[in-house]
Design a binder for these strands. Structure first.
Lengths: 234, 234
DNA sequence: GCAAAAGTGTTTTCATTACACCCATGC
DNA sequence: GCATGGGTGTAATGAAAACACTTTTGC
């Protein structure tokens, strides 16, 4: 077979919007870009799609290179293709967003990439259209978490209900009534109470919970209305 | 500036999943592919992204070539990038789905592309991964229409509540109680009752409604819970 | 004993569901 | 006058929201 004639071929990149939660705030993992153009500027972690790779493969590879993590929650966010988005050469980018347990991210912040977790509240200027990507990822996270139980992906295996509530409050930048909140999350049946308690953040201690993995898989795509009134999202 | 060295460039295509509604069933607009490979097989309408075009531009251009329509509801669905998806040459495809008023689609089905509206219930074999695209688009449509008032895009400017109900029933392949259905859609405040009636489908006639465009724009991204229990979607 | 966070219960309000009859018209 | 589809009301149920006090324990 021949090739399609007279058509322009383009570079295809992946960029990863990697979210973490440090117990208080939502964080974004960014790097200092290591090559021109825009070398030394803050950037999302990314790379080019290789000839034998699909997008998911490429995104997983890139995430692993940066964090050492595998099997992390990741989904395709959007394909960005403005003709001028990379001044060097026409490059399209398929953006993925990932949710990682920031605690499992042991590998110290790679010297090679100069990666850092920065708070979503104070994001520095990012190269190209990466700020658009981050904004869209944040909107998608809010949208999706209102309906599906994805925020657990940001927590360690064992977590407390107050921790979970702080996470939801960080994502929606609002406060929830703790009685209604705990009733709601427990009513999903997704949580299994543990015998031990977390004791660093209070004297009394808060019981740990784990996800019921069976139910979690089963309900992952159900409409759970996790957040009753998330406001005007898109 | 130079170019990025040692990276593979790829063809970038757009494919359009175009939905219509004929008053009874959901339809998909497909064409007979006009070039090799797979010439003469059923295919989605598509084309290559040009050097000076963004994805939205390209998708609009392609939709216009096929249907003559502009200003149609269209959103990016997903980027498909499996390394083997086009046997001829590595080609990635950014899929869009569009909702068109099938009645506004006057231009007779283009001879050049041999386009046809086919029922979603009996889709023929499509080339490449186009069936995956259609399935994903249908899932997205159900997902989104459960929460946002997008199905109006499939109807003419003036429509009746029974027509609207048939549309929702087609999308979700289920039946709704007409009293609850009409109360629910009217409670959104999005509909403006007209003075005239549609008289072809019943003797008594059903009042026409139009969208309140102001409120429609304002509420487009709100969570409306248009369909209370859409079941297990993804 | 007191400060700090965890945990729990009740009432009200609102949305959703289930369900049945009358209306207008063409034939 | 009857068949066809259009249009409406009500009662019961379930989910969400508002709201305050008791418990535990380290200091």
């Amino acid at each position: 077979m021949t090739r399609y004639s007279r058509q322009t071929r383009m570079l295809v990149a992946i960029d990863c919007i990697i979210f973490g939660f440090d117990g208080q705030d939502l964080k974004l993992l960014v790097i200092k870009r290591g090559f021109e153009p825009e070398k030394g500027k803050w950037s999302l972690m990314g790379g080019f799609v290789q000839p034998d790779e699909g997008f998911d493969d490429a995104a997983s590879r890139i995430l692993k290179v940066l964090t050492g993590l595998e099997g992390v929650y990741m989904e395709q966010l959007f394909a960005f293709g403005g003709p001028e988005r990379d001044p060097m050469e026409r490059t399209i980018s398929v953006a993925f967003f990932a949710l990682v347990d920031i605690n499992a991210y042991k590998q110290q912040l790679s010297e090679e990439y100069r990666a850092e977790w920065i708070s979503l509240k104070k994001i520095p200027r990012l190269i190209f259209d990466h700020a658009d990507m981050v904004n869209m990822a944040q909107a998608r996270l809010r949208y999706k978490a209102a309906i599906h139980p994805i925020l657990f992906e940001l927590l360690p295996q064992k977590f407390t209900i107050p921790q979970l509530q702080i996470l939801y409050e960080a994502v929606y930048d609002t406060m929830f009534d703790k009685r209604n909140f705990s009733r709601k999350v427990l009513s999903t049946g997704l949580l299994v109470k543990q015998k031990d308690k977390e004791r660093t953040s209070s004297k009394r201690g808060a019981f740990y919970y784990k996800l019921d993995k069976r139910k979690y898989s089963a309900k992952f795509n159900a409409f759970l209305n996790f957040v009753a009134d998330p406001g005007n999202l898109k």
